[in-house]
Design a protein around this nucleic acid. Structure first.
Length: 271
DNA sequence: ATGCGGACCTGTTAGC
DNA sequence: TGCTAACAGGTCCGCA
C-alpha cells in the first residue's frame, strides 16, 4: 500500500507524537524483515531523543542525537501511534516506546519493509545515497529525465519507477501519470522528447500532490486507534481498469505486463 | 553500463 | 465449498 503519498501522510501523522520525545524502550518481536533488525538495537535507541522526522523517497527517517532510525514500509507495512496497554496484533514486529507513553508500532505482514539503526548521516547510508531526485522538489525536471534517459531502451514506465532516476513513483502512479501525459508505458525511455518529459514531470507532481491530499483525508486516523491502511479515495483513471472505458475517449483500457509489473493504459490516448 | 530475472514474505482472490 | 495458483501498491542483488 505505501506509495510516496502514504509515506508522506504517515510522516506527517506520526511527527507530532514523536518529535522531541525520548525513546524509553524498543521492542523487537520479529527480527527478520527485508534486512534483519540488528541485535542490540534497544540499547542503541534507549534514551535518545527524536529530533526530526523526515522522508527520503519512501524511507522514513527518525533523526536521533546519535544516528537515525530508517523505516521502510515495503509493500504492506504501516505505522501507527498506540499505547502500551494495547496488545500487539499479528505482524506487529517492532515498537518504539516514547516518554509521552505513546508507542510507535510497526506492522508489516509481508515483511518487505525495514527498520534499521544507522550511525552518522542517514542520507549517506548505502540504501539512500544513490537515490535519485525527489519528485516534489525543483531538481525533478524535464531536463533531468531527458538527460538521464538518452540511449536508454527500457520502457518509460520502468524508467520513471527507477529510484536512481526519481524516487517515490510506484506502480499505480506510474500508470496514472503516463496516461495523464498521453505516453505509452512501453515506449523506450530514450525515444521520448524533452517536451513530453516536461508534461510527464508536471503530471507526476500534480498526481502525487493530489494523492497526498487524498491520503491525508482517507488516512486521517491512520496513526490513531483505527490504523486501517485505507486505500486512496482518488479515482484512478487507468489502474485496475482493464476492459473498462477510457475516461477521455471511451476506448477499452488495456492491461499489459511490463517489466514484470501490471501496467494499464489507453491504446488510443497513449502513444 | 544496462536491463532483466529472481529473491525476500504473507494474505487475498480468481479459477478450476 | 475447497483446493491451488496467481497476484499484490517495493527494492535490492547478481548475472548476462
Amino acid at each position: 500500500m505505501p506509495e510516496l503519498p502514504e509515506v508522506e501522510t504517515t510522516r506527517k501523522g506520526i511527527e507530532p507524537y514523536c518529535l522531541g520525545q525520548v525513546i524509553r524502550d524498543a521492542v523487537v518481536r520479529k527480527r527478520q524483515l527485508r534486512l534483519p533488525i540488528t541485535r542490540g538495537i534497544q540499547d542503541k535507541l534507549k534514551g535518545q531523543c527524536i529530533q526530526k522526522v523526515s522522508r527520503r523517497g519512501k524511507y522514513l527517517l527518525l533523526h536521533l542525537e546519535r544516528g537515525a532510525l530508517l523505516i521502510h514500509l515495503g509493500m504492506s507495512g504501516s505505522l501507527r501511534i498506540t499505547t502500551p496497554a494495547v496488545a500487539p496484533a499479528k505482524h506487529d514486529h517492532f515498537d518504539l516506546v516514547l516518554a509521552n507513553r505513546k508507542v510507535l508500532r510497526y506492522h508489516d505482514p509481508r515483511r518487505f519493509g525495514l527498520v534499521l539503526y544507522t550511525l552518522g548521516d542517514p542520507l549517506e547510508h548505502r540504501l539512500l545515497c544513490h537515490l535519485g531526485c525527489e519528485p516534489l522538489t525543483a531538481d525533478f525536471s524535464a531536463d533531468h529525465l531527458y538527460r538521464a534517459s538518452r540511449s536508454r531502451k527500457l520502457a518509460v514506465k520502468n524508467f520513471i519507477m527507477d529510484s536512481k532516476v526519481v524516487v517515490g513513483v510506484g506502480n499505480i502512479y506510474a500508470s496514472e501519470a503516463l496516461f495523464a501525459a498521453g505516453i505509452h508505458p512501453a515506449r523506450p525511455a530514450g525515444d521520448i522528447s524533452k517536451a513530453r518529459y516536461a508534461t510527464l514531470v508536471k503530471v507526476i507532481r500534480k498526481i502525487l500532490r493530489q494523492a497526498i491530499r487524498c491520503g491525508g483525508t482517507t488516512l486521517r486516523d491512520f496513526v490513531n486507534e483505527d490504523g486501517k491502511p485505507g486505500y486512496f479515495a482518488q479515482r484512478l483513471a487507468v489502474y485496475h481498469r482493464q476492459s473498462q472505458a477510457c475516461t477521455k475517449c471511451g476506448t477499452l483500457i488495456c492491461k499489459q505486463v511490463i517489466g514484470q509489473r501490471a501496467s494499464f493504459y489507453c491504446p488510443r490516448c497513449q502513444s
